[in-house]
Amino acid sequence: MERKPEWLRVRYNQEAVAEVAQLLGELRLNTVCKEANCPNLGECYRKHTATFMILGSQCTRNCRFCSVTPGHPQPPDPEEPENVAAAAKKLGLRHVVLTCPTRDDLPDGGAEQFAQTVRAIRRACPGATVETLISDMQMNTAALDAVIEARPEVLNHNVETVRALQKAVRPQADYERSLAVLRYCKEKDAALLTKTGFMVGLGETEEQIGELMDDVLAAGCDVLTIGQYLQPSPEHYPLDRYASPEDFARYKAMALDKGFRYVASAPLARSSYKAWEALEGVHDLH
């Protein structure tokens, strides 16, 4: 294994991780932190923060960058919305991020489970903000409407990589469809903060990165996250390069210059890492 660069070092506290894992296990909840083998899990669990993965831990797609298990997921757990809300309350979360594996097997892509979970969080955690990090839901507008009508503060959907690498990296998804999801949600509710993210290190060029930024901005996207692709295993999409912290600073400047309202760009930045900072950062601009 090639030696990791200095900036890919994370702290890991076993007791803090075990404590949060136990709470989540008791409520039969999944987190994308664990399922995607997130490098920030130790830091986030220590701060009593987690990103809930509703609708099971198995995904109906098989993107080549992602370590969530592909398979045949179970039907949605009817108790999950209340259990997520209970966990959010116990953890004292001010900003709750919900995500899911892609559920192409469900007619609504899991939209109703999202909506019910947002509403359960509203009841259990007054004052907390909610971010829904959704799949493309096959651009089913009725499904997207159900999520939007639950009024999350942030609607997040990741384009993941530049246009030229979509087929190789996420063969069952589609760049234009992801842009359409972002555009539709913004047009439906202008007050909704929309957000997307992509990885670097898959083989993209700086010019392609600039085009991606232009494309998602044109879709009305407010917030952008940029992070290093980390190959989950030798079987996953090969790593092209480690971008340096200076590279990430340059991407951030480029994105802010183009007009994004908030940009998180760092090697270990992830779609939901310190997600509340984006919300606070945007509100500071009002």
């Binding site: 890919l8 070092r9 076993q14 083998n37 490098p39 980390l230 190959q231």
Partner: peptide
């Protein structure tokens, strides 16, 4: 307790394991 004691490399990152 809480100070990093050793490093373990996994597929994605290097983890600094804190003393318990």
């Amino acid at each position: 307790a809480g100070e990093p004691l050793y490093e373990v490399e996994t597929d994605k990152v290097v983890n600094q394991i804190e003393a318990t």
